[in-house]
Write a protein that binds this DNA or RNA. Sequence first.
DNA 1: GAGCACTGC
Length: 846
Amino acid sequence: MSKKKQKDPGRGIAQLLQTLSKKDTASETTRGQKRNRDGTPVVTIPKVEAVREDVFPQKGTGKLMKPEKTATAPTIRDRPRRASPLAKQSSSKPISKLPNPLPGRKTSHKPDEQLKESLQPATPLSRRQDALLHTRKTLPIWPHADSIRSALRKNNILVLTGETGSGKSTQVPQFLASEPWCTKCIAITQPRRVAAISLARRVAEEMGSHFGRQSPAAKVGYCVRFDNATGPNTKIKFLTEGMLLQETLRDPTLQQYSAVVVDEVHERSVNVDLILGFLKNLVAGVEQGQKRKHPLKVVVMSATADVEALVRLFNNDSNSLDEKGSEAAETDDTDSEGSWSGISSDAESDHKDQSKKSKSQSKSNSKSKSKTSQVATCFVEGRQYPVKTTYLPEPTQDWVESALIRIFQINHREPLPGDILVFLTGQDTIESLEKLVNDYAEGQAKDVPKLLCLPLFAALPQHAQQLVFNPTPPRTRKVILATNIAETSVTVPGVRFVIDCGKSKIKQFRNRLGLETLLSKPISKSAAIQRQGRAGREAPGQCYRLYTEESYNDFDERTTPEILRCDLSHAILTMKARGVDEVVNFPFLDRPHREALEQALLQLLNLGCMSDTGSITELGLKVAKLPLTPALGRVLVEAARPERDCLSEAIDIISALSVEDVFLNLVTEERKEEAEAARRELYRREGDHMTLLVTVQRYAEEQSDRKAWCQRHFVSHRAMQNVMNIRKQLHSQSLSLLPPSSSSSSSSLTAHQPPSTLTETKAASLLRCLLRGFIANTARLMPDGSYKTLTGSQTVAIHPSSVLFGRKTEGIVFTEFVYTGKAWARGVSACQLDWMGEVVGELMGS
DNA sequence: GAGCACTGC
């Protein structure tokens, strides 16, 4: 409030503009998105023609594009149907329309029916197919079709690097579908649900096929959690990475597939790393005579991936490389030279170098094998307009201010159209910059474009997120203030200017402390390039980096893969359940640190998921099958024990813990107080978990109008719908957890229950189950009023979002332990010290 | 007194 200068907008603008002219000395370089592997620019490719949105289906547009499918239909139905003119961001304004994942067709609000309508009578499938064929032929990947096919006839593995807009995700599966070896289904993995669904829809159109559940004849389908839209004739199946991993539990050799295409590998999720390792083992196993009738073809696709590392992963016997160091063996490779570089095009020389290197390594290190699989590589150029990049001449302390200056500079100098996308670190900086921009915008001259400031971050309510997709009003420029949600998950249309603060909040697990940190860190070069590229999607653009070129040069080449900075217990349990006995020998693209592995193994041992010989226990196998973290899975298994007798309630709590915040986050003091009062009937003094239980129970019991119930209690309806999906899934999966004798309890799971009351014994039972999974996350009250963890003697504070905030109780158990400037316990329940003692005793005894 | 982004038979 001390910023008095904002109160004089006219003067503020003058000052800003003064600052602008000083900053004009910023060093400028021009770079297109096309670049060498070290991030240095390459001569920009000539542009063929304007890149139209419908030529390149936008993938990964995040949660903003809700799939038009039944599972999520309620969310869509909730939205106001009537169009409204774009107005100020009064957050409850109805939105005019949903983003349309497939331009050329109206987005339907009644998914299935309208989709069918629009597909069938209006445009016969084949006519649409013919129309699309024309645009398909203009994709950069199109000329590579034959070489991709022939590479996979000769080899089982292809590493395909294709930059944004190359068309690889939609075309590669179609290139392969008619191949003689392709007798079964092709799987294509995606990191996000929306991407899987919208790609499937697009490919179905291009093939002139029905899609998903439209018809049993559909050749293209998708499979994501809660929504399996595949049929008996599905030939091309888009699925999330997690889904494919689940399938490997039932079908370890992936018999149902002739090929697996792993897309977006450069994002390096833990799941993709596991999939690559499993596929590597599978391909190697098949070559050694493991039971698979046909070889499995694997295509690894990535935007900027380290081709060399991928080739090495599939080419070497990394186990022997790491552990055995066996003698060099001569393999007959006289005829393999051709297949190595056979189809690389633009980057041929580059890749030849790599393959030689990899090959010599494989020769000297790997064990003798009659048939080492060869890896083909292919590079496909992308399509991207050039982006002119400007650095600051000197580092800045206050990049919120620097961003503010740049926004007004752009607005004064650059003609419309051209929206601005600003990358910031989090909600707090977004909101303070939003306020500053709005204050200064008041004082702008009449002849410059108006500014429309739109925040964009994951915690923002859906309807507020949707605003970024609305067309920009006349004589107005949109300024989107975003977190890195806009880096990969959401593609904002109309952006020609990017302002990049060079930082983002990164989650990192601290093994020794057992907590995760969420701190603002410099981004990597590849992330900076990704952000920059967001300015060149539709036209040549500009990128302003709020740091110096020297700082950029100091950035890491790429973002540390998630597997090197997360809690590995889930990943290891996943591996153990799929028969990987020696985790240290698993073919990791990046090998996690020994300490992280040890910590995770210890955690699994404590949960009873593993024996002390390192093999998975029966209990561990049960936990591995659940769509939960090992700790939450352990809680569920505990709750199914007859003496605990609280499975149904545990499922309610765990479901609520599995979604983002159930309780809406209110902005003004007034609304917060209102919410407090409305929610009071849900709050339980035992803590957040019992409060969640009561919330889920009340919601589930509400038969007339659940949406209104949510509004009354300031609860997120969207989150609760998700809770109900998860709850249903967990119910059906946990029937097998119950002892066979307890048929009464299992029927009570499914039967309609009378309004529930939470007794004290039930609450105590639930808390003891929670403790069994989260004994590492317990703390006790110190004489000075602080809490210290039982195991690490770490000071921890109850998070302000907790119902126990400000309360004192002898002991607490919490389901989240995060450091953000301070160690916070989130999801907190009060518990007795002797309950903790019981669990510790059990651990010591066993 | 505070919350980067994804995902799951």
